[in-house]
Amino acid sequence: MSRETLRPDDSRWGPTDRISLESITHGFDGTTVFEDVSLAVEPGETVAIIGPSGVGKTTLLRMLALFLRPDDGIVRVDGDDVWALSKRDRLEVRRRVGMVFQEANLFDASVRRNVAYGMQVRRRWADRLRRHVERLLGEENRRVIEALELVGLADAVDRNVGSLSGGEAQRVAFARAIAYDPDYLLLDEPTSDLDPRNTAVIEDAVTAARNDGIGVALATHDMNQARRIADRVAVLLDDSIIEVGPTERVFTDPGDPRARKFIDGELVY
């Protein structure tokens, strides 16, 4: 199901529902990383961010995940300028955004404990009470199993993460990010170290999440992958997003000659 067919019939989202960077400028140690970068990801779409290694794809995702505050510009989630919010409100916003990293970064515990973690860190009393009720009713376990089923690892729920292969670990990391039902999902080259089978499982899971209404931002240097699963593609090059648009249009008819060179593998950087 394409984004265009998904969204118009869906009344779940308001007109401002998106996660976005607006005119972001940022640098490290006097070196500019981004210059006037803008990008938005809407619910129910997958946006692939492509670009050469070291161009700042991870930094861009970390800004969307609120790890980093930009030097200038606005990060918005569903209309809110998140860095203008109180710390408490910003925490609530963070809890609506999930992230999967290049490494699985699992905790040294069972698969179940890892996947349930996102549901367990809610600290408001009402949330705690709800969590205990959910646990009593088996709701937490149901969501853990559901998330693991999405990546084909429901049978591994009681295994220790030390016994997982690299691909399985990354699939658990994906399940962990999706289990607490985030509105937006940020994926930082989640399949770069995986074999085709594990890559396919995660790509299917990404598509399922997107079809379920989650807005997905995917940083990848695998252009075939971007072409397979993204609704839109943004090309990050020379400190800014030089091209953004529907996937097929960007790959077949990019407006910026640098984007054309990068896609054709002719760009020397």
């Binding site: 963070r94 955004v97 992230m99 970064n105 905790f107 040294d108 996102g118 600290r123």
Partner: peptide, 26 residues
């Protein structure tokens, strides 16, 4: 403790205390 593990706890909505507890466990 790997920074990535702390990042994962933070990314899932962990507060500084949550991240510290994860670090102690690790």
């Amino acid at each position: 403790v790997e920074e990535g593990v702390q990042d994962a706890a933070y990314a899932m909505g962990g507060t500084r205390l949550d991240v510290a507890l994860v670090t102690i466990k690790e």
